[in-house]
Computed example of a mutant assay.
Amino acid sequence: MLQTSEPSTLRNTLLITAFDVQKLFFQRRGVIAISCFSLVWLFLLIYPIHGAVELLNNPNFKDFIIGFAQMSQTEKLLNWQVPELTVYWVIALYLYPMFSIIITADQFASDKQRGTLRFLLLRSNRDSLFFGRFLAQMLIQTILIALSLLATIFLACYRDIDLLLPSLSSSGFIVIALIINLLPYTALMSLLSLHANSARQATLYAVLFWMLTSLGLAILNYFFPVTEFLQFIKPGVQLSDMLNTQGAGVLTYSMLPIIQAVAFLALGRVYMQRSAL
């Protein structure tokens, strides 16, 4: 029985993942979401990224930034070979987590409210549905990251074709780092979406989670400084440290988000198995 059930679980998980990804490209709602995402990044490419590149290419501006901030905080960031990727890295590092909370908020909430979640569970087990939806959201976000990064590389090559190889060599590390950073956000939304009755409610739960966690940990750390390590409960606590990295260095802080994602997924799985859906 074990030999037949395990492959079936894996197969169902992959089928659910593939189905959810297909919805992004073949259903009206998914096409609208991609269009909105594309317009946002088109605006970012034309204005913040393109405009900031001109400043980064100015030696006087670099000297000003280095003198204004601590050298250790800006040295690696300002020495990226492709300025477009420098600005992309800064924007994407903080913007994609917010995108992730919004676009992954409806993993289960709408299906639960409409009653279709029970219909799906009649044809698949709970593990397949839970992890299939999570993998689908991660794959969708990977596609979006790749598209935005390709557009940034195109912008850099349009300015200087010699930047193609440096762009490609740096972009691989950027994609991996951004995907790893989004793991805990997506896993947390998997958990919250199971409890919420709508995507909006799941998003509200996420905001409350960050507000209450930040406030509670700040108060706890004030009275008991030894509890400072509990800050690592919050997803994204490592983002400010990752800012001044480049190349393979962007993967230095990858272990924390992976651990956070595993913890949230474990909680989500327990909730999925024990709740009356």
Rank of each mutant, 00 (worst) to 15 (best):
L122Q: 10
L122D: 05
L122K: 05
R123P: 01
R123T: 00
R123Y: 00
S124G: 06
S124Q: 08
S124N: 09
R126L: 03
R126T: 07
R126K: 12
R126V: 04
D127I: 14
S128R: 06
S128C: 06
L129P: 01
L129R: 05
L129S: 07
L129A: 09
L129H: 06
F130N: 02
F130G: 01
F131Q: 03
F131D: 02
F131A: 03
F131S: 05
G132V: 01
G132K: 04
G132H: 02
R133N: 05
R133S: 06
R133Y: 01
R133E: 00
F134E: 02
F134C: 02
F134T: 06
F134H: 06
F134G: 00
L135G: 05
L135F: 11
L135E: 03
A136T: 04
A136Q: 02
A136C: 04
A136M: 00
A136K: 05
A136I: 02
A136G: 06
Q137N: 14
Q137H: 14
Q137G: 14
Q137A: 12
M138T: 13
M138I: 11
M138C: 10
I140T: 07
I140W: 06
I140C: 05
I140H: 05
I140Y: 05
I140K: 07
Q141P: 06
Q141T: 02
Q141E: 10
Q141N: 10
Q141F: 11
Q141D: 07
T142H: 00
T142N: 01
T142V: 09
T142Y: 01
I143C: 15
I143W: 10
I143V: 15
I143F: 14
I143T: 11
L144E: 09
L144S: 05
L144Y: 06
L144F: 09
L144R: 05
L144T: 00
L144D: 00
L144M: 13
I145Q: 08
I145T: 10
I145R: 04
I145E: 09
I145V: 12
A146T: 15
A146F: 15
A146V: 15
A146P: 07
A146E: 10
L147Y: 12
L147M: 13
L147K: 08
L147R: 04
S148E: 12
S148Q: 11
S148F: 04
L149M: 12
L149H: 10
L149S: 08
L149W: 11
L150I: 15
L150Q: 10
L150E: 03
L150R: 12
A151I: 04
A151S: 15
A151W: 13
T152Q: 08
T152P: 13
T152A: 14
I153L: 09
I153Q: 04
F154N: 13
F154P: 02
F154E: 13
F154V: 14
L155E: 11
L155S: 14
A156W: 03
A156L: 10
A156P: 08
A156D: 07
C157V: 15
C157R: 10
C157F: 12
C157I: 15
C157W: 13
C157D: 04
C157E: 05
Y158F: 14
Y158T: 14
R159H: 12
R159A: 13
R159V: 11
R159M: 12
D160W: 07
D160G: 00
D160T: 06
D160F: 05
D160P: 04
